[in-house]
């Protein structure tokens, strides 16, 4: 039984060329995401990944179809769903003049719960930034902080929207490790990405989206067996990123 079940999801937006017409940003999508798996929505920009994710989260209204999260109907009880999910948005900005600790306490208060900001920040390797302002953080630190914000309610499901876009390889690897360890603690993770390597390394199962539809859905290994062309006879040892990391080291740069 999936913890997330989406049936025939549709979302239409007015066409940018002709306002009388609409186009389907998301077209009849079916998803069943199992408890404790890392599920990836893979696709090029504009494929409908973020729209799909936001419909699952109850942030964008659903035109047709339905979504059940932990057997709660997102359309009927959005507030109940929001209580058990953690969301990292693609773009994150916070109130000015509040430091990380104050922001975490603020977000926790919106769930009517209290947290220890220090241990939460330690979880994402930001314990020494407890009094820093979000704008003083580097890109990788900002992403890790936004994950910390998504964890304040100890969610059952964590949604990550392009968590590693714009990060350097060190920060990216670090974030993958964070996602892995959260997953090992029992958290279901749904993420979007257009990074193939990320999908392959991190996800238990992936769905490939294009033009609002899911065109393939399986484990990365099975998808490779099904669709990938024959590998070259002498396989390459690693890739250029491994070279980059070997030369510059694995330590975080921010």
């Amino acid at each position: 039984m999936g913890i997330i079940k989406a049936t025939n999801l549709e979302k239409h937006y007015p066409s940018p060329d002709n306002s009388a017409e609409t186009f389907a940003a998301v077209n009849k999508i079916n998803l069943s995401i199992r408890q404790k798996e890392i599920f990836g929505l893979l696709g090029p920009n504009g494929a409908g990944k973020t729209t799909t994710l936001e419909m699952l989260e109850g942030l964008t209204s659903i035109d047709k179809g339905n979504v059940f999260i932990n057997e709660i109907d997102v359309t009927k009880q959005p507030y109940e769903v929001k209580k058990i999910i953690g969301v990292q948005l693609q773009f994150n900005e916070y109130f000015d003049r509040l430091n990380l600790s104050e922001l975490l306490i603020l977000f926790a208060s919106l769930y009517a719960t209290s947290i220890d900001p220090e241990s939460l920040l330690a979880k994402v390797n930001l314990e020494d930034k407890i009094k820093a302002l979000p704008n003083d953080l580097s890109g990788g630190q900002k992403q890790r902080f936004s994950i910390a914000c998504a964890l304040v309610n100890n969610p059952k499901i964590l949604f990550l929207d392009e968590p590693t876009t714009g990060l350097d390889p060190q920060a990216k690897r670090n974030l993958w490790n964070l996602a892995k360890s959260l997953n090992e603690e029992g958290m279901t993770i749904v993420l979007t990405t257009h990074n193939m390597e990320e999908a392959e390394y991190l996800c238990d199962r992936i769905a490939i989206m294009d033009q609002g539809s899911i065109i393939a859905q399986d484990t990365p290994q099975q998808l490779i067996l099904d669709y990938a062309p024959e590998p070259p006879e002498i396989p390459m040892q690693g890739n250029i990123e491994d070279v980059f990391l070997a030369l510059t080291g694995h330590g975080l740069r921010d």
Partner: peptide
């Protein structure tokens, strides 16, 4: 300002009414 910067959106990810 809060809406333009997406701060409002971040707020309403949580169950606040």
């Amino acid at each position: 300002e809060y809406r333009r910067r997406g701060i409002l959106k971040r707020m309403f990810v949580t169950p606040i009414k």
